[in-house]
Amino acid sequence: MAIPIADIAWAREELARFLELTDLYRRPDPPGVAVITAQLSNRGAEKDILGSAQVVEQILDRVLPRWRTEVPDSRNRRVNRWCQHREAVQRADTVLERDAEVRARLGDDAPDLNAAVMHPWVWEGARPLWQSGHFREAVTAAGRKVNAETQNKLGRKDVSETRLFQQSFSQEHPKPGQPRLRLMEDDGSDTFRSVHRGASAFAEGFFAAIRNPNSHEDGLPELPEHEALE
C-alpha cells in the first residue's frame, strides 16, 4: 500500500539516528580491572534515545501500524529495552526504501486506500482501536466521532446520526436552530439537489447498515482489515 509519509528521506534519517543511538556494545573495562559480564549498553545517552524514540514511534505507527504486537518483544527485553524498537525500525526502513520496488516486482502496483490520509475526524476516531486490531470497533468509533463533530459544527445536540444528517443536508432553507450543511452553492440545479440528497442517503446508509448493527448486535465476527478500511 502507499506509504503514508510525506518526507521519506527525513523519516529514514530519523530511523537511522535511532539505530545509531541504540547500538549495543560492551563498555570497556576500567584500567587495571577485568569485568566478567554479558551486559551490553546503548551507545547513546538515555535522554537522546528517549527523544529520538518519541519521533520514531510516530513513524512506526504510520509505516507498521501494528508493530507493537507483531514485532517480538518479551524475549528481546531481556537483552535491552530498545530491541523491539530496533527490529521494528529495521523493518520500517526496508519498507520505506523498497516499497515501490516490491509492489512493482510482485505485479500489484495498483493504488490502495490509506486510512491515515482520510479526514481527521474519521482517522482520529478510529486510530487507537485500528492499531490494536479491533477493526469493527474502529469503524464504529469513526462513526461516533463524525457524528459528534458534526453536532459541534452545527451547534446541535438535540438530534444525532441519521436525523442529524437528514436535517443538515435538507434542501429546505435554514430554520432557527436548524442550520444546513452545503456541498456547493444552491444554484437551483439538478446537480445541487442530487448532491445533497445523495449525502443524506449516504449518511443514513452508514448509520443503518454499519454503525447500528456494530453497536447493538453481540457476537458479530471481527471485520477483515481490508473490509473495515473500505
Rank of each mutant, 00 (worst) to 15 (best):
residue 124 E to T: 13
residue 217 E to K: 12
residue 32 G to S: 03
residue 60 L to K: 00
residue 149 E to F: 09
residue 164 L to D: 01
residue 161 E to K: 15
residue 80 N to S: 14
residue 13 E to R: 15
residue 201 A to P: 00
residue 85 H to C: 02
residue 183 L to Q: 02
residue 151 Q to P: 01
residue 190 D to T: 14
residue 121 W to Q: 08
residue 146 V to M: 11
residue 52 S to P: 00
residue 138 A to M: 06
residue 86 R to F: 00
residue 153 K to T: 07
residue 108 D to S: 11
residue 45 A to L: 13
residue 40 L to S: 06
residue 77 R to F: 03
residue 97 E to I: 04
residue 95 V to S: 02
residue 83 C to E: 15
residue 62 R to Y: 06
residue 170 S to N: 04
residue 192 F to I: 07
residue 41 S to A: 11
residue 91 R to Q: 08
residue 120 P to M: 07
residue 212 N to H: 09
residue 52 S to A: 15
residue 219 G to A: 11
residue 179 P to K: 01
residue 85 H to D: 06
residue 93 D to Y: 13
residue 69 T to Q: 09
residue 33 V to W: 08
residue 214 N to K: 01
residue 170 S to W: 04
residue 171 Q to K: 14
residue 181 L to H: 02
residue 198 G to Y: 12
residue 155 G to N: 02
residue 170 S to Q: 02
residue 160 S to A: 15
residue 42 N to H: 11
residue 61 D to F: 07
residue 18 F to T: 00
residue 160 S to L: 08
residue 2 A to I: 12
residue 213 P to L: 06
residue 62 R to G: 01
residue 142 A to R: 02
residue 68 R to W: 01
residue 204 E to F: 05
residue 51 G to V: 04
residue 136 R to E: 05
residue 157 K to N: 14
residue 10 W to G: 04
residue 205 G to E: 08
residue 21 L to E: 03
residue 51 G to A: 13
residue 230 E to V: 11
residue 27 R to A: 15
residue 20 E to T: 15
residue 114 N to S: 14
residue 213 P to A: 00
residue 182 R to H: 06
residue 139 V to Y: 03
residue 147 N to W: 03
residue 193 R to W: 04
residue 25 Y to R: 09
residue 82 W to L: 03
residue 5 I to F: 04
residue 123 W to Q: 04
residue 14 E to C: 12
residue 107 G to T: 06
residue 114 N to G: 10
residue 199 A to W: 04
residue 174 P to L: 01
residue 91 R to Y: 04
